[in-house]
Simulated scan of single mutants.
Amino acid sequence: MATVTFHGDAIQTSGTLPKTGTKAPDFKLTDTKLGSKSLNDFSGKKLVLNIFPSVDTGVCATSVRTFNKEASELENTNVLCISRDLPFALSRFCAAEGLDNVVSLSDFKNRSFGKDYGVTFTTGPLESLLSRSVVVVNQKGEVVYTEQVQETGDEPNYKAALQALKDA
């Protein structure tokens, strides 16, 4: 379990992020058309897993916009924006913002992603949502960078994640 904060108050997550150098855990998430996506669907691609509590908050929305802009310029790369938002909300947000360089995925159905990646909040007002985190995966499916943002209201370190992606 990891401890992060929300408005300065300590809250717990269900585990810890995968270690760098290990295989990224597989997942089954729901896309905006209600289809299933797994890690295998992105085989051979570099991935940014942009994980957050809800796209309907300012910081989460900013992370989606930022990764949409920055990673879209990189070849053979997909940005997966992952939350427990309903697929309809994710679709609405991306359509309203004109974002087409990210893949929005939801962990609302089986909720195993949050458990497998150790990012489900287990205490506090955001309990059962996903902790703001970034996981970068190389073309071989190996984790090359992780960050669990210490204060949930803060943005991730885009520069470090993008550099890890370029170096992967």
Rank of each mutant, 00 (worst) to 15 (best):
A2W: 00
F6I: 15
G8D: 02
G8H: 05
G8P: 05
D9M: 13
A10H: 11
I11S: 11
S14D: 10
G15Q: 03
T16P: 00
T16Y: 08
L17S: 11
L17A: 10
G21R: 01
T22D: 14
K23A: 15
A24H: 04
P25C: 03
F27C: 01
F27Q: 00
K28N: 15
K28E: 14
T32I: 09
K33H: 08
S36T: 14
K37Q: 12
K37T: 04
L39H: 01
F42D: 10
S43R: 13
K46V: 09
L47I: 09
V48Q: 07
S54D: 12
S54N: 12
T57Q: 11
G58M: 09
C60D: 08
S63P: 04
N68R: 12
N68G: 07
N68H: 13
L74V: 15
L74F: 14
E75Y: 06
E75C: 07
N76P: 09
N76Q: 10
N76L: 01
V79E: 04
L80G: 10
L80T: 12
S83E: 11
S83R: 05
R84A: 13
R84M: 14
D85V: 04
P87M: 02
F88D: 13
S91R: 15
R92D: 13
C94I: 10
A95F: 10
A96P: 02
A96C: 03
E97L: 06
E97W: 02
G98P: 08
L99R: 04
N101I: 11
N101Y: 02
V103Y: 08
L105R: 01
S106K: 01
S106G: 06
D107A: 11
K109H: 09
K109F: 08
R111W: 02
F113P: 00
K115I: 15
G118A: 04
G118P: 00
V119W: 02
T120M: 14
T120F: 06
F121R: 07
G124C: 03
G124L: 07
G124M: 01
E127M: 12
E127S: 13
S128A: 10
L130E: 10
S133D: 07
S133A: 15
S133R: 08
V134S: 10
V136S: 03
V137G: 06
N138E: 08
N138L: 00
Q139H: 07
K140L: 13
K140R: 12
K140G: 03
G141H: 09
E142Y: 04
V144F: 06
Y145R: 05
T146H: 04
E147F: 10
Q150R: 12
T152V: 15
T152I: 13
E155S: 13
P156A: 04
P156R: 04
N157F: 12
Y158P: 05
A160R: 12
A161M: 06
L162G: 00
L162K: 02
Q163T: 14
Q163P: 05
A164F: 06
A164V: 06
